[in-house]
């Protein structure tokens, strides 16, 4: 079972220090400072938000079983994921593609009465807009989407290509539901969705790295300036205020938040942006001391580091130092 493999894979680095719930939040893509930090700290950014609809109940059940029979499944090859990069545009891209294929397939047969495969109005508007611009080039689009998809699906394991294409709806042909796909290919419902996500990440990755080769698929992606950064918007606000020269206390006061929350924001931003912001709160040497201690003790546990350094640094500084680690390693 793929979901089980993924949970074991994520549990490996995380397990001693964080609860199972943190893996759940990671897969589900909870946009909290803690979850984003976990993803970075434990090298699991590729799994961030790959299963937004995962229910806690299903997770707990699969996790409990997976932990028991550990070791057997994990050797399986992990499908490609890049959650941190694509998590926010996986669904829009998928549904634009599904609706576009439905449109192209029907249009070429002269059929314009059909129920759109998605209810999402934003997606419908988006495709409508595309249609208005490109209505005289629909044959090019049909051929282009076909060629590009064919080439990229070829590179995937067959199961992923089958699951993807069987889901497509077109002229007088309706795609299969998750349950039907699971039944047809003898996989779990949860895994159908995970493979689907992996396929979309694969399409996005290839398209993004070579837009010239995949112009039609590239057109379905969000433009860079529209990309939602993985920093929470509340943390972004804190950053802007810090950049204007306000202090942590002032920001907390103005925004009606606690100072600890503001500090959470700073740690979160440090994970993604490095020392740009953190240098105001911790010096390079202090950070090095903390990291050194963490490395020697082989732990990321704040309490332990705090004790080892005899309370010389507060928790906020320790967290900042840990968030800077990647940065430091790259420099070294």
């Amino acid at each position: 079972m793929l979901l089980a493999s993924i949970i074991i894979h994520a549990a490996e680095p995380i397990r001693q220090e964080r609860s199972a719930a943190s893996i759940y939040h990671l897969l589900q893509g909870k946009r909290s400072a803690q979850t984003l930090q976990d993803a970075h700290m434990y090298g699991l950014t590729h799994l961030f938000g790959i299963y937004p609809k995962l229910s806690r109940q299903v997770f707990d059940q699969v996790a409990a079983n997976a932990m028991q029979e550990e070791g057997q499944d994990i050797k399986k090859i992990m499908p490609y994921f890049n959650g941190m990069a694509y998590q926010s545009q996986t669904e829009p891209f998928l549904y634009r593609l599904l609706l576009l294929i439905q449109l192209l397939s029907n249009q070429t047969k002269g059929e314009n009465r059909y129920l759109p495969v998605t209810d999402n109005l934003a997606i419908q508007q988006w495709i409508k807009q595309l249609y208005r611009q490109e209505q005289h080039h629909l044959d090019d689009w049909r051929n282009g989407v076909y060629e590009e998809l064919y080439g990229l699906l070829e590179k995937l394991p067959q199961i992923q290509a089958e699951l993807f294409v069987d889901r497509l709806t077109g002229y007088h042909h309706i795609g299969l539901t998750t349950v039907q796909l699971a039944e047809k290919y003898h996989v779990y419902d949860t895994d159908v969705l995970l493979y689907q996500t992996s396929t979309i990440h694969h399409l996005l990755q290839h398209t993004e790295s070579n837009t010239a080769a995949f112009p039609h698929l590239a057109a379905l992606m969000d433009r860079p300036q529209h990309k939602i950064r993985s920093i929470t918007s509340t943390a972004l606000k804190t950053r802007t205020m810090l950049e204007r020269g306000m202090s942590v206390e002032q920001i907390a006061l103005v925004r009606g938040l606690t100072e600890n929350t503001i500090k959470d924001h700073i740690v979160e931003i440090t994970w993604l942006d490095g020392e740009a912001l953190s240098s105001k709160f911790i010096s390079d040497t202090d950070a090095a001391v903390i990291l050194d201690c963490a490395m020697q003790a082989g732990t990321n546990k704040l309490k332990q580091i705090h004790a080892l350094l005899e309370g010389k640094y507060d928790y906020f500084q320790i967290r900042l130092a840990l968030a800077l680690r990647k940065e430091q390693e790259v420099k070294a």
Partner: peptide
């Protein structure tokens, strides 16, 4: 049978 045939049928 098979995704290649299916994809061809849908778009080509």
């Amino acid at each position: 049978t098979g995704w290649r045939e299916q994809l061809y049928h849908l778009l080509q």
